[in-house]
Design a protein around this nucleic acid. Structure first.
Lengths: 354, 354
DNA sequence: TACACTTTTGCATACGTATGCAAATGTTCC
DNA sequence: GGAACATTTGCATACGTATGCAAAAGTGTA
């Protein structure tokens, strides 16, 4: 009985209308930019709204406008700091467009079909899939429903779904050229998820560079983009009788793990005994304990491209697959032996441009 | 004209009803567990629903039931891996309860009032604020509206809003005792955001331990829970004529930065020249390059407690402030000099229990 | 078969908002 | 002042679902 606050239900537009002595339509119009309403009544309505603590019901509005202003974001996993960074940037940019993020996580190593029902039930205006994908039936369903989908940091074989990535093949190639120029003689690759386009493309580019120099031997182990798997892969590779002089680890998150194993379990000096390069330019790669030579994924530009695609397609209603691959840059740090030429100092960073 | 897929609007319950030869109510009941409907008609409805690709419209349902099954999660920032970890666990647990996460980020160092309107417009069923808070007026408004709010990893002076934290004061005290037992003679503290309860409580506990041993001198600098600020704070502190022998850094995220500065800018050997302890037991603290002695924040339990509070209050409609502080454990690693006694080996970890 | 009772069904309405349309009001110009 | 026009307003309806209520159908008993 004491302190029992009686739960008050939210104020509705009709209540505001009564208070302001106008119709409910007027209240609606007062909150719709560009609607047909005189400045005077708008002012009166807004005053009443403020007095009553009225907030338009976005849910009810969705029902009538068919626009929820919600974007579903599915992130495979957040263990790799790259994704939290992406998520923050996405949140920022979508908020700027007055859209909101409905977040789903936990779909590493499989497609996002299990949450698809949930997503569709909320009538989202668009879907972003980071490092995960949809079965082709569900992608098709989105097209038919007019819901734009963008794959972030992944593509599918069938090019039917839009995607935004870094130029992974070019990046892998660049890293290969960098290591070759450093004069290494044997190479290893610690792979991410084997069936991911990101992993495949990086490897393809790496191989291209190597075979252009006549090198076909490549020691490969798989780290599945996870720390523990990468550690295990590193142990296998470093235990080889003739271990590679240089290892390309498919992303920085795993590269950190590989460096830890190399140093603390095998007593190797990074760069002197073993060169390591990564991909992403994620936080720890920049920390002096690691200083990983890596190819950047330009998060800002990638997110911008992603949001642009969504906004365009939401506005036009025309869903068509757009593929954007943004160039990355090879940032030179201390984790790999340096080539004699090609390193350029540019606003605080050293980059490699052969 | 070619390939121009005509956008098809979603199937409604009425369409399913027509197809199945029943009323719209029947369709609704078929999708409502425990509703009054015969198995036979339910089966027929579900068959039609499947045939037409029907998915209940969660938005329309929200309008009538007053339950959106959406929880707003506001995260101050994601730079510190602790939060992505929390976010993943929250996602998992809320999904298990069939709730969904509407995510807002970017409210470090200020309250979440700016997004409050957005949150309320979506008629969320509950709010989780991680390392951020609300002004007392808005908290009050939530109470009145019957929307449960839980502060995660933070409390307010006014105890009017529920909270879930680690026992920060006890944790700080424990770290103090650990460092004292290690025989250090001068101490420093690198603070997080100065007005945050987390920071204050950890410091309070630390001071308690120190003054119990007759030590009142404590060198303090502020790192605001950010990497760059922590680096600057570390530089200041390590440049002191008589720098502290032991530093408690308010969280692991900053401790990593401090260790990097100490090693790579001041050439110090961690533990031998300088002891460092942190808080959180976040990913990098476990990496061998850092091996930070730290107090755990038990994410699982904290998230469980958070979700429990929300679910209870949503179900009962009774909003009352509940405060849960979960004990953490001091995990002993290599970043600080070891005391002679009190270290216990327990399932793979070394913990400190004085 | 008739009755009482239980289960199932459909009807009608409500949720809170946006919007086409026609009526009402305001403005301009002769 | 009045016609011609532009702006503003309210009415009515629609969005897709859940649910109280009464009617209908089913079940069991005598």
């Amino acid at each position: 009985m004491d302190g029992g606050v009686t739960k008050r239900s939210p104020v509705t537009s009709s209540q505001v209308a009564d208070h302001a002595g106008v119709s409910q339509s007027a209240v609606s119009r007062a909150f719709t930019p560009g609607a047909s309403i005189s400045p005077k009544t708008r002012a009166r309505v807004l005053a009443s709204a403020k007095a009553l603590g009225y907030r338009p019901n976005a849910i009810a509005r969705t029902l009538i406008t068919n626009r929820s202003r919600i974007i579903a974001v599915v992130m495979a996993y957040l263990e790799n700091l790259f994704y939290p960074d992406v998520l923050e940037e996405l949140g920022r940019r979508l908020a700027a467009e007055n859209y909101h993020v409905l977040l789903f996580t936990g779909f590493k190593d499989r497609d996002s079909d299990p949450v698809f029902d949930q997503i569709m039930q909320y009538r989202v205006d668009g879907i972003i899939l980071a490092s995960t994908s949809l079965s082709s039936e569900l992608s098709e369903e989105c097209m038919v429903a007019g819901i734009p989908v963008v794959l972030f940091n992944r593509t599918t074989e069938r090019d039917e779904t839009s995607s935004v990535t870094t130029q992974n093949r070019e990046g892998g190639k660049l890293l290969g050229q960098f290591l070759l120029a450093g004069g290494h003689r044997s190479y290893g690759y610690i792979a991410g998820l084997e069936n991911s386009s990101t992993n495949r493309d990086r490897l393809t580019g790496f191989r291209e560079a190597l075979s252009a120099a006549g090198i076909v031997d490549l020691e490969i182990r798989t780290g599945n983009f996870s720390r523990v798997d990468a550690e295990a892969a590193a142990r296998e590779m470093l235990s080889l009788p003739n271990r590679p002089e240089a290892i390309f680890v498919a992303n920085d998150h795993m590269a950190v793990a590989v460096m830890d194993v190399a140093r603390y379990e095998y007593g190797l000096s990074i760069s002197r005994d073993l060169s390591i390069v990564g991909f992403d330019n994620v936080g720890p790669a920049r920390w002096p304990s690691y200083g990983i030579t890596t190819v950047t994924q330009p998060i800002r530009q990638m997110v911008e491209a992603t949001v642009d695609i969504l906004m365009d397609q939401i506005a036009s209603g025309e869903i068509e697959a757009i593929h954007k691959a943004i160039p990355g840059e090879l940032i030179v740090r201390e984790s790999a032996r340096l080539p004699a030429t090609g390193i350029i100092e540019t606003n605080g960073y050293r980059v490699y441009r052969p």
